[in-house]
Amino acid sequence: MSTKVIVVNGPNLGRLGVREPDVYGHQDLETLRRDCTEWGRELGLEVEVRQTDDEAEIIGWMHRAVDEQTPVVMNPAAFTHYSYGLSDAAHMVTDAGLPLMEVHISNPASRDAFRRYSVISPVATGTITGMGFYGYRLALESVAHLLND
């Protein structure tokens, strides 16, 4: 039996491949969905990739993750820098003893000054930045490791 993991993506990530390809790459959300599903299968994880531009929807997904005891890989995108509501929801995930890996395709620390602060990192189990889509694989590997530890 595989463990379910949700991969949650925030605002503008539905525009992958179109938005700033020099920063985010040329691959799209469907490629990310396919890659994460395959990587998860290799790790014995059932991966569901989600994306929304709606902060309330992500918070709802986090609440359900707690209720259903589902580990989370999250790229909060722009919500990273200011969403205290999402930070509180992320805190609930880790307080429930579930892994929550924060992922960023780019390295926020090497970009605009406002991107250098994350309200998610202090409550996340771990953070992976600047590795492109491969960062999601590392995050899924980390979840699998933590679940088997």
Rank of each mutant, 00 (worst) to 15 (best):
A77S: 06
A77K: 01
H145N: 14
S121W: 07
D35E: 15
Y84V: 12
A65N: 03
S110M: 11
G17M: 07
P108A: 00
R137Y: 08
V93D: 02
V5K: 03
L98E: 08
L98V: 10
G14I: 11
R41E: 09
I6P: 08
P99A: 13
D149A: 15
V5F: 01
S118M: 04
E57F: 05
G40S: 05
S142Y: 15
P99E: 05
Q69M: 13
S87G: 09
E42G: 09
A139V: 08
Y24T: 01
Q51E: 10
E46K: 14
L146M: 14
A65H: 05
S83W: 02
V5C: 05
G132N: 05
Y24E: 04
V23A: 01
E57K: 09
G25T: 06
G85E: 00
I58S: 06
W61F: 03
E46R: 14
D95K: 12
V73Q: 07
P108M: 01
Y117E: 14
R15M: 14
A124V: 02
M92G: 11
H63I: 10
I120V: 01
D88C: 06
D53V: 06
A56S: 10
H145S: 14
L45N: 08
N107C: 01
M74T: 11
T70Q: 08
Y82K: 03
M101H: 05
H63Q: 12
E68H: 04
R64L: 10
K4S: 10
T94H: 02
V93N: 02
H63T: 09
M62T: 07
R15E: 13
V18G: 13
T3L: 14
M62L: 13
R137L: 07
H81C: 02
V47Q: 08
P11M: 06
L147Q: 09
V66W: 06
V8C: 12
M62A: 10
T129I: 12
M92V: 11
G40P: 04
T3H: 15
R19P: 06
D67E: 09
A113F: 13
G135V: 02
M131F: 08
P21L: 02
H63A: 08
G14E: 12
F133E: 12
T94F: 00
F79D: 00
T37P: 13
V93M: 03
A90M: 08
T125C: 12
P108L: 01
P71Y: 09
N12W: 01
V103T: 03
R50P: 08
F133I: 12
R34D: 15
E38H: 13
S118A: 07
A65P: 04
P76S: 08
F114N: 01
R64Q: 13
Y136W: 07
A56D: 12
P11F: 03
H91N: 15
H26F: 15
T31N: 14
A65W: 04
